[in-house]
Every structure is written in C-alpha cells, then in structure tokens.
Amino acid sequence: MAEVVIIDYGMGNIHSVYKAVKNVLDKNSNVKVSTSFKDIKNSSHIILPGQGAVGSCMNNISQVFDLDEFKNHITKKPFLGICMGLQAVMSFSEEDEGVQCLDVITGKVTGFKSLGKNLKIPHMGWNKVEHTSNHNIWQDIENHSYFYFVHSYYVEPEDPKVVLGTTNYGKKFTSIIQKNSMIASQFHPEKSSKNGLQFLKNFLNWEGDIE
C-alpha cells in the first residue's frame, strides 16, 4: 500500500509520470499531484520529476517551498528524483552560469558540451543502463536494459558508493544514484515502456535503505 505524491513545481511534464505511476499502482494505493507539505508529510513515497533548465527549476522550488523544510521532508522517506529531479538534489550545477542546488548528494552537475566531442546534445533517445550494484530497484530488470533519456547535463557524485548505474554517451556517466531513502535517475522511467514501468513498481515496493 503506497500513498504517492508527485511534486508539481511547474517544471515540465508531470502528467506522464502521474499516468505511469497510476498504471502500476495496486488497488489499495493512491497517487496525487501536489505542492502542499501536508500531502508530502502524509505520503509514503515522494516523486520529484522535472525538465528544463536548472536555474528556473531551483527558482521554482524555492518559490513553492522553504528549502530547509523541503530537504528535511524529501530525505525522510522513499524519494524518487527523475531527470531534473536528480540534478536538483546535487550540490551544484554548472548550467545557467552556475546554480546552487539542494546539496543532498555531494557532487556537481556538468554539461556534455564540456567533453568537446562531436556529440549531439541533448542526449536524446534510448540508452543502456549498466547496474553497478545490486539493488531492489533492479528487480526483474535485466542488466544493460534500455531506458529513455533526454538531457544535456549529467551528475558527478563525489562518493562512488551512491552510484547505482552508469550509461555511455561520450563518456561513462552516472545515470542513477541511491543514498538512504533517496533514488534519483537521469532517465525517464515513465517513458521507458516495460522496463520503466517495472522500475516504478520496484520503487513503490521499496521502503528505503538505512545506512
């Protein structure tokens, strides 16, 4: 039984996430889109989606929430950050001439552009995720399965222990992290067909790991 809250802070297509979660929920569970602390407090699982640029993302979050209180809430129970929701939990992003992020996971966000190769940006389409550690989030998902990506920046966490999976695009980059009750993916499970739905199902069955 899960009470899922998807945080709507005006950054992109939350409807896809809502529809995908709804598709995998069991009949005793509920999902709602909300920005209220009350809903976040009463939830069992939190999802922070998001697309677009990090500057407006952090700006929108700080307009809707008190940041300290927000950080407090999202580190207390199973949390899934998706795409911008991953980049937002890092310390700092180099996008938009440098933006301070939530700093729940130590590390920075940097652009594919700086690799200087002849890469098409955004990294858009289906790419493989290599599992770098065993975790319940990978239940019934084969190693090196394809997930859907669309992003121009990627995360570089300082602690290699938080890395759950990597992907190759110009270089091997971290495409999913996990620390305590927080999981955050660069790919979009809500757009990744069968594997993505299984991933969301696994998240809803997860109660968070205690260090």
């Binding site: 990294h123 858009m124 389409g125 790419n127 990506f149 992907t167 695009y169």
Partner: peptide, 8 residues
C-alpha cells in the same frame, strides 16, 4: 556513443 537509433 551507445544511444540507439530510433525508429518512429
């Protein structure tokens, strides 16, 4: 570059 070519 491991991104798959898409068929749409």
């Amino acid at each position: 570059m491991d991104v798959a070519k898409r068929i749409i």
